[in-house]
Write a protein that binds this DNA or RNA. Sequence first.
DNA 1: CACTTGACCTGTCCGC
DNA 2: TGCGGACAGGTCAAGT
Length: 276
Amino acid sequence: MAQLLPDKIITRVTNDWAKSYPNAQTDTDAYVIGAKVIDVRRRAKVLLIDLSSEYSLVIHLKMTGQLVYRGAGVAFGAGHPNDSLIGKLPDKSTRVTIEYSDNSKLFFNDQRKFGWVKLYPTTEVPNIDFFKKVGPEPLSDEFTQADFRQRFLRRPNTNIKAALLDQTVIAGVGNIYADESLWGAKIHPTSLVRDLSAAKTNKLYKELRYVLNLAIEKGGSSDRNYVNAEGKKGSYLSFARVFRREGQPCPRCETAIVKTRVAGRGTHTCPKCQKS
DNA sequence: CACTTGACCTGTCCGC
DNA sequence: TGCGGACAGGTCAAGT
């Protein structure tokens, strides 16, 4: 995305599901049509496309959203090299289509319709409720072990998995990387935050950063249909130690991985390695 | 206030 | 094969 979009000029934005582009209206076109893409950024799980109009498209993929970019012509239909992963576009999951002056298109596809594309003045983005409350980026250089522990201790009476998933504590950790990092740190997901020693939270800090870096290197976790902007799948799940591995042997101790429900989410643990 | 649960949606899978 | 229910990568609002 960051390589594909800059300098492209938007000529049209259409949406097939109102909630996927909730502030779409004719007067928003004034800030979008004819605008040039200046930059593509990310904060937490949100993507920002900054435009020359000083407005930004703010995009959240939620569970099943995906952004797929295609050049003009044959790329929209049969014969595209990515057809085995995702076929002709738009398709029945296409919610928003952004067209550019070179006739390329960016498709926002989202089977479950939880994701969205919103438009805000670029200077207002930091004032969106979500961005005011969201926690620090766990991979940033300034984010230390001590910061990590201190952030968690704001939620002393909840379990560590709920705290890991809480975007106001730490940004960007979802269900997969929560399970994976807890396994790495040998912490049971139901452990109360207040009961975790500094040694444990330090270990979790290291494991979380390891897991996130590995996931980035592998192109993320394509659960089923997910593809990136170039139509490619990520491969992290083939490296996962516990996530979606119920009944398979723990890579450390061979004990069968179990699946339970913690913080309302499917949760995978090794019952021997992660006792507390 | 801190914390948990249900709602938002479509599609798939599993048991009857 | 059909049908009901549970579940799926995330976040809010409403509930306790």
